[in-house]
Amino acid sequence: MLNYVIKRIISMIITLLIIVTITFILMHLVPGGPFTDSERALSPAVEQALMEKYKLNDPIWKQYLEYIKGIIRFDLGPSYAYTGRNVTDLIKNGFPVTAKLAVISFVLILIIGVPLGVTSALQHNKFMDRLIMVFSTLGVTIPKFVIATLLLFLFAYKLKWFPIFGAESLKSYILPAIANALASIAYITRLNRSSMLEVLEQDYIRTARAKGVKGYKIVYKHALKNATIPTVTVLGTQMVTLLSGSFIIEKIFALPGIGRYFVQSVSNRDYPTIMGVTIFFSFMLLLMTLIVDIAYGYLDPRVRIQKTSKGDK
């Protein structure tokens, strides 16, 4: 197991390095520099001074090496767009908000998505199943920003149950989290339903039934564990989707998270922020995948045995 984890961490570092390199190259290929203002031309001397200040006059390879050195020291460099702020600070400031939003969304997925899927499967082809499927289809198809706008209008503006914008209290996160999670909830519901249906057809379930095990025991003790494996597989990536996909939600509800830097930094040509945010999210994605893979082993002994035997060779 330990061997496996170490191997994975090494491959993670290599992957990250590749991502850093590709982003770095792409970024410098895009026309327009960080100090091209949208309307006003900068005097060449000022632009030169800015380039000098941020060491952009150095050859690209040197900038690249300096950057890599910085990452090793966890220094992501200064933001060009926000004078006097470090990218590390931007992430430190914004990530708690984004993370809170993602965690609440994640909890919603678990406590709504999984039970709905199970109910749907148990009520297969009955009214309840159909109803849940209609809702989950809607959830998957309606874009996030439409849901967000509707929720905002109805529950914050009309009914005044929630604040319209900002991140003042936990209450501020409820609507954004629902809007953020809805598509994932629908997805998890459908996934859980189909895997549950599949599991319920299996021989060992039939055997359990024949032996007279009670209905709820079959579901909770025998079927659920196996039926959740596909769900666990996608939960990791869903978490990253929630984290990174919150951009539009953060914008609509004016939450001060890091989602905004995703797009803004690119249009600002704020190189260090582009790099910083990319590295950060890539790292999160890789980490989630690793956690999911480890969790697999605990849920499904077959996976664990395979992995260990590979590791032993």
Binding site: T149, L152, F153, A156, Y157, K160, P163, I164, F165, G166, K251, I252, F253, A254, P256, R260
Partner: peptide, 18 residues
């Protein structure tokens, strides 16, 4: 000063008195 970029949200916040 609050920073609401999304125009629709800003207008709702204004109309709701926030």
């Amino acid at each position: 000063f609050v920073f609401i970029e999304e125009e629709g949200t800003a207008l709702s916040a204004f109309q709701a008195g926030e």
